[in-house]
Write a protein that binds this DNA or RNA. Structure first.
Lengths: 227, 227
DNA sequence: TAGATTGTTAATCGATTAACAATC
DNA sequence: TAGATTGTTAATCGATTAACAATC
């Protein structure tokens, strides 16, 4: 067996670039659906809502997938980005906490169509264990380790109340799940090497509110000064 | 009436700092609930999941609300941050699109408790207009302008399918709603001055998948080379 | 006063952007 | 070849961090 050099694995791609790759992928899928076969960096950038210099710089970290004077082949670039992100394969996912948000997540079609397969829904409440949501049985939270091992689950989604979230995260880590998407409004502490991303609805709204307030204050001020 | 200088309005606070203020606010609320009256930057930083240098730098944009040698008064700092974000007042919000996600959002208690009041739920589907979700009637989408004017709505939430989202955004802008939280997986185009934030569940998962893949590739490589 | 901790400085790091040489 | 567009360079901008003087 030949020892590989580090060149075989992904080069170091900046975090900001990684966060935009899925946006480019979505834009390319939309273009493909519209039967567009080729696009320039300018066109793709517009579809993705970024400027073209940033797009070209981002793509340059992946390799040279375009043709000067012509642009990018939509299908080819789409495949290369999907491969780089890792969504050419299917990732088994567990969702813990089947409240309103858990229901919404389980039913979200965007997961299945984009490389993710919900293999289990877990909830601590025994009253929910009879339910079937989006074609998947709700199972007791205790079965986490078993299910994770059985399906090789690498990604867990936490949609529980804030108080339960840390315990769920600990159990996920024990079960070998090292990537967690956390919807609970709490800061999780996890060992090194475990990757946590956080989505917080009320924080997003508060960031908007800050800007609304500034806009309102600015226009009130302008009005006052012109009076 | 005295003309005000620009010093009276908010200084320019970096975007990265603005995005963290709600996190600090939440940490302070948790500390207050635990009857903690004073905290150091180190303690608050730990609770918020950042390092203390960053926390102090962030707070320095708001003013000098701490006491050297002592730390911060939890209640006082909490109020100052809430005021800076603008959540000492209540913001009326409309949610458009009452599918699974819209339901989850309407029922999310974190809104009401953090300065936001859902004044209307709108959906284009007449079959939904009989429903009452979280104590609020679902109304026809056509009533957007009317409701926005009546309640002075400044913030709109889009939880529709991707195809409807641009139309909803256009109508929101017409109705004078200049801040939009978009859950639909699509890029919105809006006029200058309109603020759009985007939450995309499948993009967050894809970012996780990228890192899982890299971890997996790295350990497979290590194993191979050590063999 | 001595110890503790803030608020600020300055260095470093990473991300964005415009411009353009390379090249189809 | 002439026109178009990529991939890359280098300058700029903004964010992070460690260190410490100011000060309670």
């Amino acid at each position: 067996m030949t020892a590989r050099t580090s060149n075989d694995t992904a080069r170091d791609i900046p975090e900001a670039t990684v966060a935009r790759l899925p946006i480019y992928l979505r834009a390319l899928i939309t273009l493909a659906e519209d039967s567009i076969e080729t696009c320039s960096s300018e066109e793709l950038a517009t579809a993705a809502g970024v400027n073209s210099a940033k797009l070209r710089k981002d793509l340059s970290y992946l390799g040279s997938y375009g043709t000067r004077g012509v642009g990018y082949d939509v299908e080819y670039l789409r495949y290369q980005i999907a491969r780089e992100i890792g969504v050419t394969q299917d990732w088994p996912v567990v969702i813990v906490g089947i409240g309103n948000l858990g229901h919404a997540l389980a039913n979200y079609s965007g997961f299945r169509s984009r490389g993710f397969r919900v293999v289990a829904l877990l909830d601590a409440d025994p009253d929910r264990h009879d339910e079937v949501v989006a074609g998947v049985d709700v199972r007791p939270f205790d079965e986490l380790e078993e299910i994770a091992a059985e399906h090789g689950v690498a990604i867990g989604v936490i949609a529980t109340p804030a108080l339960a979230a840390q315990d769920v995260a600990d159990r996920m880590v024990t079960a070998g799940i090292a990537s967690i998407l956390n919807f609970a409004p709490t800061v999780l502490s996890v060992p090194d090497g475990v990757d946590v991303r956080k989505v917080d609805l009320s924080i997003e709204l508060q960031i908007l509110a800050f800007h609304v307030q500034r806009k309102t204050a600015a226009s009130a001020l302008a009005q006052e000064n012109s009076a």
